[in-house]
Computed example of a mutant assay.
Amino acid sequence: MRLRSLALLTTAAVLATSACVPTSTETRPQPRPSVSEEEVTPIATPDDAPEISVVDSSPGGAKETDPLWQGLAKAAQEKKPIYLKTWVHTANPDLPTSGQVTVTADSPNSVSVTVDAANVNRDQSPFLRIQGLFDVEEVGTSAYTLTTVNSDDIPELDPKGPDDKTRCTAADAQDRINLAADDLSADPSKREEFRQQWGASPQVWWGIQMTAKSLSEEGGVAGDYLTEACGQYLGQ
């Protein structure tokens, strides 16, 4: 099904209990849509898993809000390998298929990651997935070079839940996704909880983060991120 082109997901429609809809005579609360609780399967980290890992969708932008940048900085400082299974939305997805390539999120002031082209999956372009175990070298204030240790997948570290297609085409997708973006905007400290709920659908999780960020900024207007995340599944 189509979700009315996700129109409500890309406006400033505020769905929190504190949101208000003005009328000619009053301002009254707009009720939250009624959706079932998210089912969350705890992630059991294997004993032999790398100490530093980032299995996530990077929102790009400042180090303070980007788990990819934070993980790379920690790995470089502590001289420990990092396991990445990280999705990055980039404006330049047409990278060479051999040699080293540089992946940078299309958010302003994002970290740049130089890595072997073989470790960058392009199947969901412009969402690129960097995957493998890497040694990390900091080569600038916002730039890192990765040396591949191995390209193994560690599926035990993956969040469990519906994939992007299932999320985007669900009957309650518009309400559920919009609520997640609004709630994350209201309480960014719950990011890890949201990652475990939504990380199995990395494109949607990216869109939720970006929408939450734009709602938190001055003006509170959501960008078109969720249409970007779901467009391929809705025929857009």
Results as ranks from 00 to 15, higher is better:
residue 6 L to Q: 15
residue 7 A to W: 13
residue 9 L to M: 13
residue 23 T to A: 11
residue 24 S to H: 14
residue 31 P to W: 02
residue 31 P to H: 00
residue 34 S to I: 14
residue 42 P to H: 01
residue 46 P to N: 10
residue 46 P to W: 10
residue 50 P to D: 02
residue 51 E to S: 06
residue 56 D to A: 06
residue 56 D to Q: 02
residue 57 S to D: 03
residue 59 P to S: 10
residue 61 G to L: 10
residue 67 P to S: 02
residue 68 L to M: 09
residue 69 W to M: 09
residue 74 K to D: 12
residue 74 K to W: 03
residue 78 E to N: 03
residue 80 K to W: 00
residue 80 K to E: 09
residue 83 Y to L: 11
residue 86 T to V: 13
residue 90 T to L: 01
residue 90 T to K: 01
residue 95 L to I: 13
residue 96 P to F: 06
residue 96 P to L: 03
residue 100 Q to S: 09
residue 102 T to N: 02
residue 105 A to R: 11
residue 105 A to S: 15
residue 111 V to D: 01
residue 113 V to Y: 00
residue 115 V to Q: 06
residue 117 A to C: 09
residue 121 N to T: 01
residue 121 N to F: 06
residue 125 S to T: 13
residue 125 S to I: 10
residue 130 I to G: 05
residue 133 L to E: 10
residue 136 V to I: 04
residue 136 V to H: 01
residue 137 E to N: 08
residue 139 V to W: 02
residue 146 L to C: 06
residue 155 P to R: 14
residue 156 E to Y: 15
residue 157 L to G: 15
residue 157 L to T: 14
residue 159 P to Q: 02
residue 175 D to T: 01
residue 180 A to G: 07
residue 180 A to Q: 08
residue 187 D to C: 01
residue 194 F to E: 01
residue 199 G to Q: 03
residue 199 G to D: 05
residue 200 A to N: 07
residue 202 P to Q: 06
residue 204 V to W: 08
residue 205 W to V: 05
residue 206 W to L: 10
residue 207 G to T: 14
residue 207 G to D: 14
residue 209 Q to G: 12
residue 212 A to E: 05
residue 212 A to W: 04
residue 219 G to I: 09
residue 222 A to E: 09
residue 225 Y to P: 07
residue 228 E to G: 06
residue 230 C to S: 11
residue 234 L to S: 02
